[in-house]
Computed example of a mutant assay.
Amino acid sequence: MRHFDLTPLYRSTIGFDRLGSLLDTLGAFEGDTPSYPPYNIERVGENEYRISMAVAGFGDKDLAIEVKENTLSIRGEKQAEVGETTFLHRGIAGRSFERRFQLADHVVVKGASLENGLLHVDLVRELPEAMKPRTIPIETKSDKPRVIDSKAA
C-alpha cells in the first residue's frame, strides 16, 4: 500500500499519470514476490534486450506470451498428461505461473524462442523519427538571400 498521496502531482502535470500508476504497481509488490520460474534480463545490444526464463518441462503449447499496454505477460500451464505416471521423486516443477514485466515506452517484442528448457523473449527499443534528436538551423534577421551575379560568373 502506498503511504503518500500523488493527487497534487496529477493536478500540475500533463501526461505523467503513468508515473503514478507505476508507483501504485510497485506498491502492490511489497509482500510476496514470485520467484518461480527464475529469469534473467540481458542487454544484448545498444537498444536490444533479452529475457531468458527457465521453463524446464514446458513445451511451446504450454506457454503463452502477450503484450498489452506496455505490459509483457508470460504464462505457463501444463497440459494434462495422458496416461498414468507414478513419480518416485518429482523435482521438476510443473506448476502454472504468470510473470509480468513493465516495458518502457517504444520497447517492442521482436520474437520468442524455446531451446534447452529456456524461453528467450527478444525485445528492442525503437524510437520513432519524431523522438530522435535533430539539428535545427538558426537563422538571423541579418541573413539576406544570396544573389548570384551572372556577370561575375
Rank of each mutant, 00 (worst) to 15 (best):
S142D: 15
T140R: 10
T25F: 03
L119W: 02
I92L: 13
N47I: 04
F16K: 06
K110H: 05
E126Y: 09
N116D: 15
G117A: 06
P8E: 04
T86V: 15
R75C: 02
R146V: 15
A112E: 09
F58V: 02
R125K: 15
L72A: 05
F16L: 14
F87G: 01
A54E: 07
I148W: 09
P8W: 00
T140A: 11
V82R: 10
A64W: 05
E66N: 14
L19T: 11
Y49K: 01
L19H: 07
K141M: 11
P145Q: 10
E81Q: 12
G59D: 13
Y49E: 01
D17P: 00
S150I: 13
A56H: 09
H106N: 15
E81W: 03
G27N: 07
G59Q: 07
K144W: 00
P145T: 13
I138S: 07
R2K: 12
Y49M: 06
I41S: 07
L63Y: 08
K68A: 14
I74S: 00
R125N: 11
K78T: 08
Q79Y: 03
K132R: 15
F16N: 07
K151A: 15
S52E: 06
L103Q: 04
D149N: 14
G15L: 04
L119T: 02
S150H: 08
V124D: 08
K144S: 15
Y36V: 02
V109C: 05
V67L: 09
L9T: 02
A152Y: 06
P8H: 02
L19Y: 14
R11I: 02
V121C: 05
E115H: 10
R2M: 11
S21R: 11
Q79H: 12
M131T: 12
P137V: 10
R146D: 06
K68L: 12
E46A: 09
L123D: 00
E42I: 04
V44C: 03
R75P: 01
E98H: 01
R50I: 13
E84G: 00
I92A: 07
Q102E: 13
K144N: 13
I65C: 10
E66A: 14
A153D: 10
N70G: 03
T7I: 04
